[in-house]
Amino acid sequence: MTRYLYKELHLAASPISWWFLAGALMTLLPGYPILVGSFFICFGVFQSFQHARESNDVLYSVLLPVKKRDYVTAKYLYTVFMQMIGWVLCAVLTVLRMTALSGLMPYVGNALMNPSPLYLGFVLLIFTAFNVLFLGGFFRTAYKFGLPFLRFGIAALLLISIAEVLHHLPGLGFLNTTTGERLGLQFAILGGCALIYALCTLLSLRASQKRFEMLDL
């Protein structure tokens, strides 16, 4: 596994993907739909797919002494690696905003989504949409990625809209709280989102491996 990741990071990935991890910093923006940051993290990974395609990465990779489907595994591994770095950054900044920065003026009375366990759960849902819609769509051809990314973009927009609207609905205000005993429910939702992320990514990987095996490169 480490050699696949090494290959991805040293040859296939675009350096610009690292810069897009800075999207996690949006967690600190007051009065801003902070989930957009997770879209940018995925957009950074997308840049690496573009770079890999231009570099003819697929031909080099399938000739290495690995199974053909391992190419797909390497791409998912890289994507999850970048997403996890992004998620940890979001989590650290969320903790910071929920504790040390919670009393700062710009954050008090924020009408939009606050960084919270629920926010981190939605970040994982956006990553799930990327892994299912973009990665799963890309590996139908291994070269067409416009439509899969558009589908992901629409799904991300919907998820961001849902996250921003939910806590305004009557009785659901607790979804935007960052203190109190109902925070436990948010942690439970976060756990559910993590499960969805892991399960959907794994299923998407299996489906992509099967499709890729049958592709003529």
Partner: peptide
């Protein structure tokens, strides 16, 4: 060799040797 046109040959070799 029509891949990774902007990477140094030394980088290509460094990655390739890890697989064999």
């Amino acid at each position: 060799a029509d891949y990774y046109k902007r990477k140094k040959i030394s980088q290509l070799l460094d990655v390739t040797r890890r697989f064999y």
